[in-house]
Design a protein around this nucleic acid. Structure first.
Lengths: 156, 156
DNA sequence: CCCCTATTGTTGACTACGCAACTAAATATA
DNA sequence: TATATTTAGTTGCGTAGTCAACAATAGGGG
């Protein structure tokens, strides 16, 4: 196994730091407008995009960046706040669905412009078309290689 | 202001998810080998690279992804664990330095191979030379644009 | 020199999250 | 069909992190 080069390390640091800065800034923008934080947003949008605005918790966890316990708690909180509703599954007695409520959808619509503006300003706009395309390519490669790794783990 | 496109949104999602997956995996690798978590590592390496292995807490906070209170607590913790030492500043009565200890450096040396392997395997290796270079370019653009934004904020 | 403002770092109160152990239901095995 | 294994989600417990308020010091004007 080859050693990591200075160059690679430098890129890595940009990756980590840039990610943190952008997320932080978007989070700040959302908070300033009294909107939901990103993790919440991610759950709501995942539900919104799902057929019938409903998803099993297990599917939901894959769409987010949380652990399953983290997601379980978050979903409970959001249910308490009325942004979604929990329903137990009929097909599977262990399972539960999270279902987007009208309030949840409203909140989503309010948060989205702010989030979108963040993505546009902090992430999309500073890049040229070329940069954007090659960033996509690179991220896709990385994502695929991580996904594969995750599957190997599960096979253990 | 232009709306964010589907394409841009898709890249953004890869960005967030990929980052999370890689960090998570490296964190896991470190924990499996009973080594310090990434935030700790970041502090130790920043000190290691600093002249005389010492930095003001204010400088340190910029090298990490923590808030200043978060950093303050982390530094306290690390001091308790003996990985660094806190020294109050002579030039500035309010200030404090974090200074890397021998134990801290030892820990650093133990953690580094695992971390490096993670960067190599999950981040560097899956990319072609071209991808790597353009990723660097793109990240650099993003970083610079965020840095500028941060400076505007401070000027408020 | 004294006061006013800015800066450095800490602290109290709180929250979100992870891990690991758990319950309950589903599925495979025998 | 009885038992073992796997899977879905929850929960107890601990920790790390944030924000906002704070103390202490620094650095100007007047």
């Amino acid at each position: 196994m080859e050693r990591v080069s200075e160059h690679e390390l430098a890129i890595w640091r940009y990756f980590v730091k840039t990610h943190a800065l952008i997320i932080e800034q978007i989070e700040l923008d959302l908070a300033n407008q009294k909107r939901v934080p990103l993790t919440t947003y991610d759950v709501l949008i995942a539900l919104y995009e799902a057929p019938e605005q409903r998803l099993r918790l297990g599917e939901l966890v894959h769409k987010t960046v949380l652990s399953k316990s983290g997601l379980s708690r978050l979903v409970d909180r959001l249910a308490r706040e009325g942004l979604l509703r929990k329903e137990k599954s009929h097909e599977d007695g262990r399972g539960a669905y999270a279902v987007l409520t009208d309030d949840g959808e409203r909140e989503l619509r309010k948060a989205w412009p702010i989030y979108a503006k963040g993505i546009k300003n902090y992430f999309a706009a500073p890049l040229s078309i070329d940069q954007r395309n090659s960033l996509q390519q690179a991220l896709y490669s990385l994502y695929e290689s991580m996904k594969q790794l995750g599957q190997e783990d599960e096979a253990t």
